[in-house]
Design a protein around this nucleic acid. Sequence first.
DNA 1: ATAATGTCGATTGTCGACAATTGACACTTG
DNA 2: CAAGTGTCAATTGTCGACAATCGACATTAT
Lengths: 246, 246
Amino acid sequence: MAQAACLWQGSKRELGFSGAVAVSVFSEVSSNDLVTQIARQITEAIVAGRLKPGERLTELQLSREFGTSRAPVREAARLLESQGLVTFSPRRGFFVRTLEASDLRDIYELRIGLELHAASLAVERATDKDIELLERQMRRLYDMADADSIEAQIFEDFAFHRMLCMASGNARLIRVYDEIAMEMRAGITLIGKLYDDPHRMAETHEPIMSALRDRDGERLREALRYHIAVARDAVVALFEETGGVI
Amino acid sequence: MAQAACLWQGSKRELGFSGAVAVSVFSEVSSNDLVTQIARQITEAIVAGRLKPGERLTELQLSREFGTSRAPVREAARLLESQGLVTFSPRRGFFVRTLEASDLRDIYELRIGLELHAASLAVERATDKDIELLERQMRRLYDMADADSIEAQIFEDFAFHRMLCMASGNARLIRVYDEIAMEMRAGITLIGKLYDDPHRMAETHEPIMSALRDRDGERLREALRYHIAVARDAVVALFEETGGVI
DNA sequence: ATAATGTCGATTGTCGACAATTGACACTTG
DNA sequence: CAAGTGTCAATTGTCGACAATCGACATTAT
């Protein structure tokens, strides 16, 4: 339904590439892998809200839109299923995942556990460069507030928290964090409405940075817990208020 | 290579089923889904050590052994990749994941964060039934110790910790825990050697149960942290000692 | 002898086709 | 009129085939 043709832009031949000159000069020559590209496009369509929760994903239709056969689409869809973005019902197909309020609560609760654990580790292991990167990310949050671009600010907000996790130095933790971050982003357009003033959204990160700078683990955890709990309560409330998605 | 024919037993027609009489009397009629079955079998082969880390998984060979075409095998392999059990190299194929000592450290470190968070929640939310189930699981640990079955005891140990996570009441947390548990199990045959006396292995769970019974969050977290950290250090040490896998 | 180059088999990436199953609609029957 | 039944289009599950690509081996030049 709808004008599906413009759901995704760009074809599978998006990076024209002529030839290699030396080794490891070019970054990721092989961004091929149709499956990955398809998965990325569907993911983007979901988190951007172009695909509505509960909507059925028909293999044939998707394959037609991507100009491929069904095989890569199936594999991409299964990938997304393992990430929790879509559900899969045998013999019925794939559907964009619908989130209940309880799901949101679970996700944010899990995020608190993960991120506080990451923070505890980061306090001990964060390098000066890690902190410098986070400081820069803070400035970017303010820049996006100035630019009044809600979407961009949300993106940078995610980047900030991801950097914090990276400072933990635990690769597995980041992998898991990325997974639930993907789930959070599915209902993320909500968050844009949480902060009337974009600057306030940026400012709420200050206590976190402050505690990290001082390497004060207890304060950092408490600041983070408060920061995330506020977001959680607001998201859940707004979610229940609007009676579901979008 | 090797006698691959007996890596997996059972065919895709393992559950002969005649007809339905009423509704929701039979559990999971559709355990079909070749992909799931294949994924499960490969998983089992990996955690059981029949497939060695680093070993290449050839689609054609796997499909021949399962008696299917390559398509379901590919999808199953991608599923396992998203779970971290196998790695995928474009144009090269799938390989059983190799674990470094640092990976094990990361996994156990993450497990500490997850399980302690689960414990914090469980202290407040665990029902009497949850605790009863855990008590029963404790007895099972001792039973397996009596039976002197290391493998079975490891299995029950996992079940115990999983139950603890379930008592948290957070579905997402369990999903994530299952993922990293899968990764832990990949190098799990190690753990069998950690405890000379199987009874001691069972006993190390007592402080955890005790703290949970008393709903003492701080004591529970501390008992768990110690319990897991001991396992982590022992596993890593044994891992580095044997210079790798198996 | 060593390094670069060319060739070839093996394996993956993708495709189109066919059988099996589902859900919906129309139809029959009490 | 309601409940059950039969039929059918749409969609998934699986397959075999072909082209593209990679790694290994043989070959050649320096």
